[in-house]
Design a protein around this nucleic acid. Structure first.
Length: 491
RNA sequence: CGGGGUGUGGCGCAGCCCGGUUAGCGCGCGUCGUUCGGGACGACGAGGCCGCAGGUUCAAAUCCUGCCACCCCGACCA
């Protein structure tokens, strides 16, 4: 078979780039750092969106939409927040163009300078809290549980399709609560929604935990994250949920009157996942033949490819294919019958493998004769022949099995690449030679974290929520520590 | 912003050192035919301001100068 992808072994980063392009997911655009998400890639994102959106609704949230532009002054209200984002903001300074005097093209009209510059949102806390101020007077107005699906811009120096782009798509939830407890509960509820989604839909096992202070969201009191392990041993933050305390309420003066008639600042959370999830999905399961998609998120779950020489064969095959397609669709399976005569079966086989379609059925003259169907599963690349009458039943079961199988595979990988280190030498050895998650004791100081980062490029991915208490000594300082945290090199 | 590299049909490249016919190869594309159970084959064909602007020269894809764009590696980040 002609090789279209660089192998993972040979060059993992190149394999990823090739895969995104060749599987027709996305491509670089004329605008530096910004990508074009192509129809097939966008179809996957739409599935992700629709499932998550359902989960948000089920937990009581509604969607709304806030502006793309944020007045610069809003940004400077919350000190940590500005500091966190200032270096990567796109700024709108003018609102008009004019013909250039030399007649060559078009220039910015200096007379059309904005009174106050607008920031293209890197995240929307400020504009939203400025709005919430007008919506909240009393405890009766709380909680506010909103989400928005939007694009945001962070002016990144180095970008990679899906993993880090200057503009990306995401959802950001922003909630307002009367009590601290309720806000914390919400923060945890949403990180659980994310980890459920990752595990049950993306077949992606994750580590759930809190961020160290230095990795925390700018403006948050506590940040929760789910961290996934990619096949090259690097960690990828797949979702975050933040307890913002009263920081934004104070910055935007959002107070409410309690039942007792006392005024207090409102408690806040925010949480988000982005098109970066696409990167996680791609890297978690795929192989040298292309994408491997979990059936639950695959835009197309089954493809039927006819194999024929004569037109009358195609006719008969098409009849049969239509029956099978109907049976599958009745069971809620998405199916495409690819009878294009512009491509040969072998080409189609390779192409659907590249695109990660979970199940492929082939129907040829031999199958007509024996009333059978050849079935190939993408995750294991195994082929088997089944009686045509049973195929719908076999496929529906198989889709579940594939979903489970790729999860188990990813879980096994994560477990086999999670190590314990008790000395710094050991730690460095693992980080440098094997990668993966490294569980180690940490004294809780930013200095130690910084030193480890400088020495090894590994950072604290999270402090696992369900880590068992275990007394030990910090691998760097030797100071006492009560539990291990997860270190890794990260995307 | 530092360090390195690359710009040549849609894509991937060769040619450049050492200037000289009509700029070449693979993939892809079009037409026709044979094929079709793992990326088919043959014949014919279409497609190029050789990144941009200057310069040197009888002559520039090739040499010189300037500019622009993109990629890779570092510091920042989801």
């Amino acid at each position: 078979m002609a090789k279209v992808l660089t192998s993972k072994e040979e060059n993992y980063a190149q394999w990823y780039n090739d895969l995104v392009i060749k599987a027709d997911l996305a491509e670089n655009s004329a605008v530096r750092g910004c990508m074009v998400i192509k129809p097939y890639g966008y179809a996957i994102w739409e599935k992700v969106q629709s499932v998550l959106d359902g989960m948000f609704k089920a937990t009581g949230h509604s969607n709304a939409y806030f502006p793309l532009f944020i007045p610069k002054s809003f940004f400077s209200r919350e000190a940590n927040h500005v500091e966190g984002f200032a270096k990567e903001c796109a700024v709108v300074t003018h609102y008009r163009l004019k013909n250039s005097p030399d007649g060559k093209g078009i220039i910015v009209d200096e007379d059309a300078k904005l009174e106050e510059e607008l920031i293209v949102r890197p995240t929307s806390e400020t504009i939203i809290w400025n709005t919430y101020k007008n919506w909240i007077q009393s405890y009766r107005d709380l909680p506010i549980l909103l989400n928005q699906w939007a694009n945001v811009v962070r002016w990144e120096m180095r970008t990679r399709l899906f993993l880090r782009t200057a503009e990306f798509l995401w959802q950001e939830g922003h909630t307002a609560h009367a009590t601290k407890e309720e806000a914390i509960e919400e923060t945890i509820r949403m990180i659980n929604v994310y980890s459920d989604f990752a595990e049950k839909w993306m077949a992606l096992p994750v580590e759930k935990g809190t961020k160290s202070p230095s990795e925390r969201f700018a403006g948050a009191i506590e940040s929760y994250a789910i961290e996934a392990l990619m096949q090259d041993g690097k960690a990828l933050q797949a979702g975050t949920s933040h307890f913002l305390g009263q920081n934004f309420a104070k910055a935007f003066d959002v107070m409410f009157a309690s039942k007792e008639g006392k005024l207090d600042y409102v408690w806040a959370t925010s949480w988000g996942v982005s098109t970066r999830l696409m990167g996680a999905l791609i890297m978690a399961h795929s192989d040298d033949n292309g994408l491997v998609l979990p059936p639950k998120l695959a835009p197309l779950q089954v493809v039927i490819v006819p194999i024929y020489k004569k037109p009358y064969e195609l006719e008969k095959i098409s009849e049969k294919a239509a029956i099978i397609k109907g049976e599958l669709e009745e069971k809620g399976v998405s199916v495409k019958y690819d009878d294009r005569d512009t491509h040969k079966p072998g080409w189609k086989f390779a192409d659907y493998e590249l695109k990660g379609v979970p199940v492929r059925l082939a129907l040829g003259p031999r199958d007509l004769e024996k009333n059978t169907v050849e079935l190939a599963r993408r995750d294991t690349l195994e082929k088997e022949t089944y009686p045509a009458g049973r195929i719908a039943e076999v496929v529906t079961k198989l889709l579940d099995e594939i979903q489970e199988n790729i999860y188990r595979k990813a879980l096994k990988f994560k477990e086999e690449n999670t190590f314990h280190a008790d000395t710094y030498e050991e730690f460095r050895e693992i980080i440098n030679n094997r990668g993966g998650f490294v569980m180690a004791h940490w004294d809780g100081t930013a200095e130690t974290e910084e030193r480890i980062k400088n020495d090894t490029k590994a950072t604290i991915r999270c402090i696992p929520v369900n880590a068992k208490k275990e007394n030990g000594k910090c691998i760097v300082s030797g100071k006492p520590s009560s539990r291990r945290v997860i270190f890794a090199r990260a995307y």
